[in-house]
């Protein structure tokens, strides 16, 4: 946990719409037994989402209001398959607002230790260990060298030389 995470209280900014957001993230990234993955509605991940909305707070509120309006009331109280159908329609009608929902969800889901382990990424920050990257085979550049200069030569007075 970094300073940024520690300093942010587990605020609950969307008291009214929390159930809506919970339903949305669960539809977006559901748990998977096949891949051994939690859903984005897993309590720890969802708490992280609520805590980490940050600068997206105004747009997220707008997105949640729009989903509620789209659902004609409370999304979370509707049957699950109806929720999924409504959200699919919402996503294609309001791609920008859907994008905000996706961003706040993915930012926390894809840093959870269980998820990172399942997708084969070490659960650590990049620094200080860094990563290995193949140097590559420099002889691949032989044909590029063989072709010779490709820049436009400029002579005195701006003429082609």
């Amino acid at each position: 946990m970094t300073a940024l995470e520690k300093n942010q209280p587990a605020e609950e900014p969307f008291e009214d719409a929390r159930q809506t957001l919970l339903a949305i993230v669960g539809h977006m990234i559901p748990a998977s037994t096949e891949f051994g993955l939690p859903g984005a509605d897993d309590p720890a991940i969802y708490a992280d989402i609520l805590r980490s909305v940050g600068r997206d707070k105004p747009l997220l509120s707008k997105a949640l209001d729009a989903v509620e309006a789209w659902a004609g009331g409370r999304l979370a109280t509707l049957p699950r398959d109806q929720q999924a159908a409504l959200l699919a329609e919402f996503r294609s009608a309001e791609p920008e607002l859907a994008g905000v929902l996706e961003a706040v969800t993915a930012r926390c889901y894809y840093r959870d230790d269980r998820v990172m382990a399942a997708i084969g990424v070490e659960g650590r920050p990049p620094f200080p260990l860094g990563y290995e990257v193949e140097e590559g085979d420099w002889s691949l550049l032989d044909p590029v060298r063989a072709r010779g200069p490709i820049y436009r030569a400029v002579g005195e007075g701006g003429q082609r030389s």
């Binding site: 994008g99 996706e102 930012r107 894809y110 997708i119 084969g120």
Partner: peptide, 30 residues
């Protein structure tokens, strides 16, 4: 990284919401 891969993949319509999310993410990430 995985976050950006998921956000871009969903925005570009390459990673769906729901059941298919995980398989599509695995195909594209990295």
């Amino acid at each position: 990284g995985p976050v950006r891969a998921a956000i871009n993949g969903m925005a570009d319509g390459l990673i769906p919401w729901g059941e298919g999310h995980h398989a599509a993410f695995r195909r594209l990430f990295g």
